[in-house]
Design a protein around this nucleic acid. Structure first.
Lengths: 108, 108
DNA sequence: TTGTTTATAAACCAACTAGTTTAGTATTAT
DNA sequence: ATAATACTAAACTAGTTGGTTTATAAACAA
């Protein structure tokens, strides 16, 4: 099942540092040391966040000499959006109901 | 900022019990005791999950005698989707690039 | 008024999270 | 050979999470 995938994806997204890292990676691949720069925390700490993102499949890394560049992977985000889309129907239905109510009221 | 809102929303969604509760609430309002039934865990445990959902603004509760019916609130889910939608552009761009590459290859 | 239903509070526990520092490993550059 | 760069591992800590059980409160029903 993909429920564990959802667990890991949403948990990974539940932290502002990790969301900022993803933002940064949208601009292009990056090294840990550069990803760590904007944050007031140690390099190993950012390395741990990176591991959470890797475990969720949101980031992949390749080898380049002593470097390990990070690359954004979109697939798990798609799965998360798909899950949330189910709810869009719910709230859109609610707003349509509300629209209908207001229209009715205007007709009075 | 809404970054704390996103923190709480994604954290709330990162648990299968809580996602199941939200699913259930899409069908209509429900009491804690009924929400707890499908799970192999105590009522207070489900009550705690409910509190996480409440704190994230995903669930509201009203009073009805000794009962406290739960109601699904869609707004925070919209904020979460909005955040994720930024990424849709990213991955859609990637797939368009891929499409272009494949088309090019077919033309050879 | 006594009991039943529904929910919450409190105390506890094991496991996990997010950070630290210190030390170590690879790989490259001089 | 040595030193610098980029990363990882290990050990530790404080705080949080997700569950338990037991007890209590609040509202209603007999």
């Amino acid at each position: 099942m993909q429920t564990q995938q959802l667990d890991r994806t949403f948990a990974a997204l539940a932290d502002p540092t990790r969301r900022a890292i993803l933002m940064r990676l949208m601009e292009g691949d990056a090294l840990l040391k550069d990803l760590a720069k904007p944050f007031e925390m140690s390099v190993p700490a950012v390395g741990k966040h990176l591991k959470v993102l890797e475990d969720a499949g949101l980031v992949s890394r390749r080898r380049d000499a002593q470097r390990r560049p990070c690359h954004l992977e979109a697939e798990p985000l798609k799965i998360a959006v798909d899950w949330l889309e189910e709810y869009r129907q719910f709230w859109e239905a609610r707003y349509h109901q509300l629209d209908a109510l207001l229209a009715e009221k205007n007709d009075e």
